[in-house]
Amino acid sequence: MGLLYGLIAVGLALIFGLMDVTNFAHGEFLMIAMYLSFFLFAFFAIDPLLSAPLVAAALFIFGAVVYLLIVRFAMRAKANAGMVQIFTTFGLAIVMRGLAQYFFTPDYRSIPQSWLGGKTISIAGIFLPEPQLVGALVSIAAFAGLYFFIHRTDFGRALEATREDPGAVALVGIDKNRVFAFGWGLGAALVGLAGAIMAVFFYIYPDVGASFALIAYVTVALGGFGSVFGAFAGGIIVGLVEAVTALVLPPSLKSVGIYAVYLLVVFIRPRGLFGSI
């Protein structure tokens, strides 16, 4: 489970953590991705596992468009930049939820049969549910990919440089909007991947994103903003803490452990575990 949180958080780590743009609509990106894979399954009988790249691609475009149409202007605000970002993306989240209710109705949906759904695999006597396992593997791959991408490619360096100093970056000929639009697309594509996998074993409804979004923020902040590895570590910690809390406290309180650990960590290290900003 922890790695799944990690997978949701990795996209956010890119947008929120690396570009320092608050995105309160991250959970709604996840919701859209889950609906996409549901409809691809319902109408074309494409298994969520196969459609995952399609969903990711669609979300990439969606993320880039959201950046170019809305977030770009929110970032331009000279006053209260933080609040403008929070409320613009929050407004967007509400609109997306409203649209989902309008077009998809508030009904709970699920994908009844898929290659992975409901199956378990036994490794050395331990039974693991397959969807979670695949989720974990994809999550590790996504983190490794992102880590490589940020630290080893020109684009990654451009992204970090743009966050640090957009003015200086413009002087050396990097188009800030192009870099950030690509970053948003990539972040959305990653959450699209998470959504496609989660669609297999989670109910899909318009508010589904809200329950995961806060944990994703906590995961990113726990690891520390500006650190891909931090978000990965954060995801694992969150998953472990949740599992342990669920053993000790009633299930409805399982998130309390996660939140308490976050508070504990930032009280000791105010920039998260591996944070740089």
Binding site: A74, L92, V95, G98, Q101
Partner: peptide, 23 residues
């Protein structure tokens, strides 16, 4: 209607106001 139109209108207004008048 229970179909979220109020959410759509409300959210759009928030986006527009915060973008147009950051102060």
């Amino acid at each position: 209607s229970g179909r979220g139109v109020d959410l759509i209108v409300y959210g759009t207004l928030i986006v527009l106001i915060s973008l147009a008048l950051p102060r």
